[in-house]
Design a protein around this nucleic acid. Structure first.
Lengths: 351, 351
DNA sequence: TTAATGGATGGAAGCGTTTTCATTAAACGC
DNA sequence: GCGTTTAATGAAAACGCTTCCATCCATTAA
């Protein structure tokens, strides 16, 4: 319950000096600083952040907007952001948009505008121009991860290119009958990521002169269980089977691998599977994948936001952008494990 | 940028009346209310929550402390809490304790004390008496989920009883060689849940006069991949194999099922597997489990916290506890699917 | 008609900090 | 030794709301 006044009187100093001493400002004698700190400790003084924020305009609070908190990518980003903010002494206010559209609009219209946030980190948020306008209207740094946002600093991976990479890997091994598991309609409404990866797939296939078969384009909800069902549909057919599957996420790739086992298909002998993500499961199941590091992306996003706060102009040391918005591509790594191999019967069919 | 003053002058009202009008208080004529709302809308006025909180003492902000954000249980709880708070117009400040002990202590010592939170929801937090003291020192409602906390309202499931239930189910089917996969040392340090479930298992085994074999007590980190490795150790042995496995979580149960497949063991013909949780994967893989609903628990926890704010005494309508701390057991459901069956060769061995 | 009641209103006093500004004391250069 | 920086300090003014309190006016009761 002790306020800064009590601390001041106990330390025999003025309120102003105590405030300066405790917040590490200059122009305080070491003796006063010690006195203030001792008194504060003895009284168990913790500054009221409301009063502090009101007076100083700094909130020590950053907002994170995520579409979901269950999916691996998002919870990993969240973890990275949380870690960095905790270290910096910042609070993290979480807005989980979820499925309900009214949550979405109330977050954008009310919550984000309440001047409680120093900055906003938006993960994979697809916004209309109007919504972007609302967001920018708060005049706070905005950092976007996994999807560019006009006017915001962006941290991203090149989903399309990575999808091409993964697909080319299969093509390079000699596969021609390649299936793709992408996000389903519900997901694609809100994220462009599945479409980007699908586009990369399509482009790579076209470049290799391979035909896309409609029946080999499956959709699922980016979960193991969803892709397992999709995989059963894809592989359980009596018609011709694909010899390789490119799944738009590692979890979905694992789902496909599990479905394959159900039909007695060996991976990679009978079926090659490749994913994208770098999920922990990928290592366990020997999945070839393009590994990204969402936790690291989260850390970088938080660090970027913090840097923008220190330096609102956004030009720390002669960086490229003058308006504070910069675009960073986060490094990824193609990890070849043993879920991909040359197609079965290559010699018999081709030789 | 508009403040309440601008709104007041535009509406031709006093600041006081505008404040009352916009926050839905009584003693405002409908005309003044309309005038205030119109002016506010026209100016795009959003109240500063710092000023508001400072003046009123209400923060509209609830803190959630979780040990991790990656595990299914925690992210599900988080989702439920977030949902309910969003509907109530409350902000959610997330503290992800994670692995680092210094984060743990800074959360308890600094973050939670900054008077920014109206209430705290703690998930599966094991605290020392001293730490509990610190928490209670904030004099805010505290709600605990998944682990009791002295002095806090608690929402929990009876992990020990549920584990007994699951084990008894296997015993009832005729199994005698039952293995258990529990949490590993690192996890058990911070959570008592694995131990509780293990204890339920042990008790049920003892009650049935069955011996516990040390080599059939495996540990993993509550992930699919961890339990997969543990399962390979458990089942890949040349020594006698268990005929049933009780895994302390559904994800671990799935890991064990996957390991079983590697050795050509059919579930449930060769091996019965039972879990606890009600994870989405359980349905896909036909896993018998005790289903809890962490999302619902999260919703309930948030609702409980909000109720305590409206009624600090904690006696909404003659409830049991007088000090505001009540203990609610959340309902669970035993779901029998097809991962459990009578042990193999029962007739041959026993008949 | 007068007194009493009660709803609507505005002025102003907080809420607990930070920060500006003026002041004082000390250190410095010449 | 004197004027001039410079560091340290405290008084007081924000910060932008909420809410207490006093006031006013329109009712209703007596």
């Amino acid at each position: 319950m002790a306020g800064i006044k009590e601390v001041a009187s106990r330390a025999g100093l003025s309120v102003a000096t105590v405030s300066r001493a405790l917040s590490g400002k200059s122009n305080v004698s070491s003796r006063s600083r010690r006195l203030a700190q001792e008194a504060a400790r003895e009284l168990g003084f913790v500054p009221s952040y409301h009063a502090s924020s009101l007076a100083s305009g700094r909130n020590h609070n950053i907002g994170l907007v995520v579409p979901s908190v269950q999916r691996w990518y998002f919870s990993s980003v969240l973890e990275g952001v949380s870690e960095t903010l905790l270290d910096a002494g910042y609070d993290l206010t979480l807005y989980n948009v979820g499925e309900q559209p009214e949550h979405r609009s109330s977050i954008l219209n009310d919550f984000l505008l309440r001047k409680r946030l120093d900055a906003v980190i938006a993960v994979a948020l697809v916004l209309s121009e109007e919504e972007i306008g609302q967001l920018l209207a708060v005049h706070r740094p905005i950092v976007a991860i996994g999807g560019a946002l006009r006017g915001a600093s962006t941290i991203r991976i090149d989903d399309e290119r990575l999808a091409m990479l993964a697909t080319r890997h299969l093509i390079g091994l000699g596969h021609t009958r390649i299936a793709h598991v992408t996000g389903d309609a519900a997901l694609n409404r809100d994220f462009k990521l599945p479409q980007l990866r699908q586009k990369g797939f399509t482009t790579a296939m076209a470049a290799a002169g391979l035909t896309l078969r409609q029946e080999w384009q499956a959709t699922a909800d980016f979960t193991i269980q969803g892709a397992y069902a999709a995989g059963r549909g894809l592989l359980g057919t009596s018609a011709e089977r694909p010899t390789a599957v490119f799944a738009a996420s590692d979890e979905m790739a694992v789902g496909v691998m599990l479905a394959a086992r159900d039909f007695g298909l060996q991976v990679p002998q009978d079926l090659s599977v490749v994913g994208i993500d770098g999920h922990e499961l990928a290592e366990t199941f020997g999945l070839t994948t393009v590994s990204q590091d969402p936790r690291g992306q989260g850390r970088l996003a938080a660090a970027t936001a913090l840097a923008l706060l220190d330096n609102p102009s956004g030009n720390p040391d002669g960086g490229p952008a003058a308006d504070g918005a910069r675009d960073q591509e986060y490094p990824t790594e193609f990890v070849i494990r043993n879920s991909t191999a040359v197609p079965p019967d290559t010699s018999a069919r081709r030789g």
